[in-house]
Simulated assay, not measured.
Amino acid sequence: MSPHAHEPPAPFGVEVDLLDTEEVDGVLDDVFVHGRRCRLLDESGAGPGPQWLLAELGDGRITGSCPGDRWRRSDGPGTAHLSAPSLDPGVDRWRILEVLVFSAHAQIRLGEAADTGWIAIDSTEEGPEWLRPRDRSFLLQGWTGDDHGRTLEGETPMAITREPSGNEAVLPAPWTVFSGRLRHRSGSDRAALESRGTWLTVREYWAADPDTGAVGVAFHRLTGVHNGTKPTGPEFDVGTGDQIEEG
Rank of each mutant, 00 (worst) to 15 (best):
Q243M: 15
N227L: 01
Q107P: 05
H184G: 10
E235S: 08
E15T: 14
P85R: 06
L182P: 13
E155M: 08
L193F: 06
G233F: 04
N227Q: 15
E153N: 11
V225R: 11
R95L: 10
L54H: 13
G241D: 10
L171N: 09
L57F: 07
G117R: 04
G49C: 13
L54C: 09
L87T: 12
E129G: 03
G180C: 14
A173M: 06
L97I: 08
T151I: 06
T176H: 02
P157S: 14
E125C: 05
G180W: 10
P231H: 03
D17M: 04
R72W: 13
E22D: 06
A5G: 09
A46N: 13
P89W: 01
F32I: 13
T144K: 10
G241F: 08
I108P: 02
V33T: 15
F102D: 02
P128D: 03
L182Q: 11
L41E: 02
V24K: 11
A191Q: 07
R61G: 03
R196Q: 09
A55P: 12
G117W: 06
H81W: 08
R185P: 00
A191Y: 03
R221D: 13
S103Y: 02
V33L: 13
D30G: 08
W143L: 14
H220I: 07
T223G: 12
I121D: 01
L131R: 02
R183A: 07
L140H: 01
A218N: 11
T161S: 05
D122A: 09
D146A: 09
G247D: 14
R221C: 12
H184K: 15
G239Y: 06
V24N: 01
T116I: 10
P89D: 05
D189T: 05
S186P: 14
A10K: 14
P157D: 11
H81S: 12
V177C: 11
T156E: 02
L152I: 10
I160E: 00
P133Q: 00
E155R: 15
S86A: 14
R132V: 02
L139P: 10
A192N: 00
S188E: 01
G78K: 11
V24L: 04
H105C: 00
V99Q: 02
S123F: 00
G233S: 04
E125D: 11
T21N: 08
S83W: 04
T79H: 04
M158D: 00
R39F: 04
H34D: 11
T63W: 06
P9G: 04
R37S: 14
S188R: 12
W130D: 03
G228F: 14
H226Y: 11
G166Q: 07
P77M: 11
A120T: 15
D146P: 08
I160W: 01
P164E: 00
E168P: 00
E56Y: 10
L18Y: 03
G47L: 07
C66P: 07
R203D: 03
R136P: 01
D242I: 07
T176E: 13
R150V: 14
P8S: 05
